[in-house]
Amino acid sequence: MRLRPDPFTLILLAAILAASLWPSEGTTAEWLGRLGSLAVAVLFFIHGAALSRDQIRAGATHWRLHLFIAALTFLFFPLLVLPIDGLAPRWIPKDLALGFLYLGVLPSAVSSSIAFTAMARGNVPAAVCSAAASNVFGMMLTPFLLMLLVSTTGDGGFDTLQALRDIVLQLLLPFALGHGLRHWLGPWLDRHPGFSARYDQGVILLIVYAAFSQSVASGLWQQLPVTAIVLAVALCLLLLVILLALTTWLSRRAGFNRADEIAAVFCGSKKSLASGLPMAKVLFAGHPGFGMIILPIICYNQIQILVGAALARRYVQSSPH
């Protein structure tokens, strides 16, 4: 079985390469930062307008499964990444370790969770509900959980009050405004589902290029040895394997049927790049090690897509006919 990266993965790598060779500096970097902040606010406005209340109600009755997935996303995963901080600074730089803590508190991915659940013939309505709810509550939970993990590990350089203020102004308010205008904007977004996905990808590329430009100017590749990059990729793969095995085992122990198990496996093990990078831009605004902080999110996202596709095919092949 061949595992091939999707085209967006290659574009992401090209953005990192471009930032490494031709980083934005000075006035260009300042304008790029402002454009990124505006783009993030518009992104959450669009997400608010696209969120269907009927869609949420359709899966909301399956509360046991939703609580189970939420516990995996916001409890088990943060506990799994907590020991990684002990590898810094001997094995990995502190900013990279902080990136793993941030990875642990992110909400579940929406599009890939639903797509792989559908591909594997799982409970799609429950996956839609859980993934959407994870991202809505994640805007509030992620900063608090990150603050808790950072205070537990003793890491510095994280201004909690400033981050919470920015989360409210740049994420929650645009999201609420967009959802309030769903009656007018929702039908158009429903008819053009590709618009939101393309805009998400555009914002991600903008953030990645700006982040790595800033970090390259601060000496990213001098501070990040190849061994640390290899270790980061290995840790991302290990985290995913542990989460998949744990989720499968706990789902069966909890008595969920096959369709619910599939939804739990894909929603509970995934982390959102589409939400994670915009939130990181708000939470770590101006941080010189920003490129290093978002590296675990980028690595984990690409690995979860490759492994998820293979796992979905395996579920289909093993399904009873």
Rank of each mutant, 00 (worst) to 15 (best):
L206V: 10
P83Y: 07
Q162L: 11
V208N: 06
S134H: 02
L306Y: 07
S151R: 14
S108I: 00
L51S: 02
V136P: 00
M292T: 11
V265G: 02
V124C: 03
D260R: 09
V241Q: 09
L106V: 05
F44D: 08
I69N: 10
L295M: 14
I92W: 11
Q223N: 14
P78V: 06
L67S: 07
L231C: 12
L12F: 01
I229W: 12
H183C: 03
Q55E: 15
A274N: 11
A232G: 06
M147V: 01
W63N: 00
I293R: 06
V136E: 00
R191G: 13
R90T: 13
S251K: 03
V81P: 03
F8L: 12
V40W: 04
H321W: 01
G289T: 10
P125A: 02
C267S: 11
H183V: 02
S275I: 06
V241M: 13
A88E: 05
L161E: 14
T227C: 01
T247G: 15
S215L: 04
H66T: 08
N135G: 08
R313W: 04
R90L: 13
V124F: 02
D95K: 07
V226K: 10
L277C: 05
S134I: 04
A14E: 06
R57N: 08
T9Y: 05
N123Y: 10
I46L: 15
N301I: 00
L164N: 05
G157Q: 10
I114A: 05
A58E: 14
L80E: 00
L12S: 03
L12P: 02
I69F: 08
N135R: 07
S20G: 14
S113K: 05
V110C: 12
L32K: 00
L82C: 05
G59M: 13
P125E: 06
P7I: 03
S218K: 11
